[in-house]
Lab assay of single mutants.
Amino acid sequence: ITIHVNGVTYHFDNPEEAEKFAQKMAKTYQLKMEIHNGEFHME
């Protein structure tokens, strides 16, 4: 699972971890999250 946050790329093997991380980042930084081709993009 690949997550892009403001141009920084994070890779996770565990989908649950990826989702937790994505939600935490979105909440902490008030980010808008989109999913493209199974990759999370946040800005």
Results as ranks from 00 to 15, higher is better:
14 N>G: 05
3 I>N: 00
13 D>C: 14
16 E>C: 14
10 Y>C: 11
1 I>G: 02
12 F>A: 00
1 I>S: 04
32 K>V: 14
34 E>D: 04
1 I>N: 02
40 F>C: 15
42 M>W: 05
14 N>R: 08
7 G>T: 05
20 K>P: 01
3 I>E: 00
28 T>K: 14
6 N>P: 01
3 I>K: 01
8 V>A: 08
26 A>R: 06
14 N>A: 06
37 N>D: 09
26 A>P: 01
41 H>P: 02
27 K>H: 12
2 T>V: 09
26 A>K: 07
11 H>T: 08
40 F>V: 12
19 E>T: 11
24 K>N: 10
27 K>P: 13
21 F>C: 14
19 E>N: 12
35 I>D: 04
34 E>L: 08
23 Q>M: 10
15 P>L: 13
25 M>E: 02
18 A>N: 00
10 Y>V: 02
28 T>A: 10
25 M>N: 02
4 H>S: 02
42 M>Y: 08
15 P>S: 09
4 H>C: 11
40 F>S: 03
1 I>D: 01
33 M>G: 04
15 P>Q: 08
3 I>R: 00
5 V>T: 02
12 F>E: 00
25 M>H: 03
21 F>A: 01
4 H>L: 06
17 E>A: 10
19 E>L: 14
5 V>A: 06
29 Y>I: 02
18 A>W: 03
32 K>D: 12
30 Q>L: 05
18 A>L: 03
31 L>C: 15
39 E>V: 08
6 N>I: 13
32 K>I: 14
34 E>Q: 06
33 M>P: 02
4 H>T: 06
24 K>Q: 13
6 N>Y: 14
8 V>D: 10
15 P>G: 07
3 I>A: 02
12 F>H: 00
1 I>T: 06
2 T>S: 08
9 T>R: 13
8 V>P: 00
5 V>M: 07
30 Q>F: 08
13 D>M: 08
11 H>Y: 10
37 N>H: 08
16 E>V: 11
32 K>L: 14
32 K>S: 13
17 E>C: 14
36 H>I: 15
39 E>M: 06
24 K>L: 14
18 A>G: 08
6 N>C: 15
43 E>N: 11
38 G>T: 03
11 H>N: 06
26 A>G: 08
30 Q>V: 02
13 D>W: 10
8 V>R: 11
27 K>W: 13
34 E>Y: 14
28 T>N: 11
25 M>S: 01
34 E>N: 07
42 M>N: 02
29 Y>S: 07
25 M>C: 11
2 T>R: 13
12 F>C: 06
27 K>E: 15
41 H>R: 03
7 G>M: 08
17 E>Q: 07
31 L>K: 02
26 A>T: 04
6 N>G: 09
22 A>F: 02
4 H>K: 05
40 F>P: 03
39 E>P: 05
38 G>H: 06
30 Q>P: 14
8 V>T: 09
40 F>N: 04
18 A>F: 07
16 E>K: 10
4 H>Q: 04
28 T>W: 15
23 Q>Y: 09
2 T>N: 11
29 Y>C: 09
38 G>S: 03
22 A>Y: 07
5 V>P: 00
42 M>Q: 04
16 E>N: 08
2 T>P: 02
22 A>G: 01
15 P>N: 08
19 E>G: 06
18 A>I: 01
23 Q>C: 15
35 I>E: 06
15 P>R: 12
31 L>D: 13
36 H>P: 02
13 D>H: 11
15 P>A: 10
18 A>S: 01
41 H>T: 06
30 Q>A: 08
2 T>A: 08
16 E>M: 10
10 Y>K: 01
2 T>F: 12
4 H>G: 03
1 I>R: 05
37 N>V: 05
32 K>Q: 14
27 K>L: 13
23 Q>A: 10
35 I>F: 12
32 K>M: 13
35 I>Q: 06
14 N>D: 11
23 Q>S: 09
16 E>T: 09
16 E>S: 10
21 F>T: 01
33 M>S: 02
43 E>F: 15
4 H>E: 03
39 E>G: 04
14 N>E: 07
26 A>N: 07
33 M>K: 00
37 N>S: 04
12 F>W: 02
27 K>F: 11
29 Y>D: 15
32 K>H: 14
16 E>L: 11
3 I>T: 01
31 L>N: 07
39 E>N: 05
41 H>G: 03
16 E>I: 10
17 E>F: 05
21 F>L: 01
9 T>N: 06
4 H>I: 07
37 N>E: 06
7 G>L: 08
29 Y>W: 05
32 K>F: 13
29 Y>E: 15
9 T>V: 10
20 K>Y: 08
43 E>C: 14
11 H>A: 06
6 N>D: 10
36 H>S: 05
31 L>G: 07
31 L>A: 04
24 K>F: 15
12 F>Y: 02
4 H>W: 11
18 A>R: 02
17 E>W: 05
19 E>V: 13
38 G>E: 04
19 E>A: 11
31 L>W: 03
11 H>R: 07
43 E>R: 12
27 K>T: 11
30 Q>R: 01
36 H>N: 06
10 Y>D: 00
28 T>C: 15
21 F>N: 00
1 I>F: 08
11 H>C: 15
18 A>P: 00
1 I>K: 05
36 H>K: 12
27 K>R: 05
37 N>P: 02
28 T>Q: 14
15 P>K: 09
8 V>W: 12
14 N>C: 14
29 Y>H: 14
19 E>C: 15
33 M>N: 02
23 Q>P: 00
42 M>P: 04
2 T>H: 14
24 K>I: 13
25 M>I: 07
29 Y>R: 00
15 P>T: 10
3 I>D: 01
12 F>I: 01
8 V>H: 11
12 F>R: 00
33 M>T: 05
11 H>D: 04
12 F>Q: 00
37 N>W: 09
35 I>K: 03
26 A>W: 13
22 A>R: 05
25 M>P: 01
34 E>I: 14
38 G>M: 03
35 I>Y: 12
22 A>T: 03
15 P>F: 13
38 G>I: 04
33 M>E: 04
6 N>W: 15
28 T>F: 14
25 M>W: 07
